[in-house]
Amino acid sequence: MKLNSTVLLTLILLTLMLGAGSVSAILGFDIGSKALKGVTTPDARPATKFASSKANSMQHGGVTLLREEEILKVVKSRIEGKSKASKLDKSQDDEEEEKAKKEKEVEKAKEAQEKPQPGFPISAESQGVNLAVQSAQISGGDLVLKVKMQNKGTDTAQFLYSFLDVTDDKGRTLSASTEGLPTELPSNSPVFSGTISIPTPLLEDVKRVSLVLTDYPAQKMHLEVANIPVGK
């Protein structure tokens, strides 16, 4: 009887010990899990670290690294752009310089044309119509007389230049051709310009020539420009 009570007491003590151990283990596991919550294992792989650090730097700094080829392309394009701009500026400067040069040449030519030849103009007037010889110069195998005509009268004047009479200082008739002279001069007309050309072989011993022009068909006007010096 005494032995049975001892065995029973031993079994009860073992059960209590096992129960207490289980409870302690469960409580310890729960406390440890809560304590280690949020703790991660370090990543020992270099590639992963590099990728992670690169991602972090891109997120925080926004720095982008260019390859050497791209840098060289950018530098080359900028140099070429500056070179083209320089060439364009130089071309524009050359064009402006050439334009200014041409304008000066035109001005000089105008001044030469406007400057009267010594002894000129020689003019004649009849019934309001004026005929003036501005100059006489040898050009291209001809004696070229530059002529201006104007009608200040109230009636229209008509001319036929085949009736133009050209004579030398010995009274000989010379052949001549006209260019640019009007066949009709209206009343109060502007100034018209043209030329009368005489072949130089006809002027070997000639010092002066004279012009006589009449209107056609009325022939009321008599425009005579005499003693025009022949420049040689």
Rank of each mutant, 00 (worst) to 15 (best):
K104I: 10
L131T: 00
A47T: 04
Q117K: 01
L27K: 12
Q127K: 10
F120C: 00
G28V: 00
R78K: 12
S22K: 01
L27H: 06
S33N: 13
S91C: 00
K101G: 14
K115H: 07
R45F: 04
E103A: 15
E95V: 11
S86V: 05
I79F: 09
E105T: 05
I79D: 13
A35E: 11
I12T: 06
D43C: 08
L27V: 11
T6D: 08
R78M: 03
D93C: 05
P116F: 00
L11G: 06
E80H: 09
S126C: 12
G32V: 04
S5V: 01
I12H: 04
L131W: 03
V39A: 14
T64D: 13
K115V: 01
A85P: 01
L13C: 13
E111M: 10
A112L: 10
L3D: 08
L36M: 15
V75G: 02
D93V: 12
L88F: 13
P42G: 04
P46S: 07
V75E: 06
L3T: 11
K54E: 09
L3M: 09
L18S: 11
L3Q: 13
L131Y: 01
N4R: 04
T40H: 12
E105F: 05
K99S: 13
F29D: 00
K115E: 05
L13M: 14
N4P: 01
P121C: 11
